[in-house]
């Protein structure tokens, strides 16, 4: 998915980032890989979209960050969900299910 399309789906990008971070804290690249993995390669989030989104979400209070060590002993900045972020994930998930169900129904209607 190229940058322009990701832009069109900004709400979606936020949702998948929140989802990716739901289990554990992760650095930027890790989040990107995790999203590829959980969407089975449908979303490839480029750094040009990922980092602005991370910083925006941190500013919104959904994420917090701290420097840590990666598996292969590299310094990296790790992001994790805050309480607000977790709430946001719940709310977004509900909203998205509702929307996707509605769209599905609409498309299946004869």
């Amino acid at each position: 998915m190229d940058a322009e399309q990701t832009n069109l789906l900004q709400g979606t990008l936020d949702l998948v980032i929140l989802k990716a971070l739901a289990l554990e804290e992760m650095h930027g690249l890790g989040i990107s890989r995790r999203i590829e993995q959980i969407t089975k390669g449908t979303f490839q989030v480029k750094p040009g979209s990922l980092f602005p989104a991370l910083h925006r979400m941190e500013e919104a209070g959904w994420l917090s960050s701290a420097w840590g060590e990666s598996e292969n002993n590299r310094r990296a900045k790790y992001y994790r969900l805050t309480k607000t972020g977790r709430r946001q994930l719940g709310a977004e998930t509900k909203r998205w299910s509702r929307v996707s169900l509605a769209i599905k129904r609409a498309l299946e209607a004869s």
Partner: peptide
């Protein structure tokens, strides 16, 4: 500077990969 560090470390991680 912090943003610079973050991006540099991302490049390092990518390179490791």
């Amino acid at each position: 500077a912090e943003l610079d560090d973050e991006l540099r470390s991302t490049i390092d991680l990518l390179a490791d990969e």
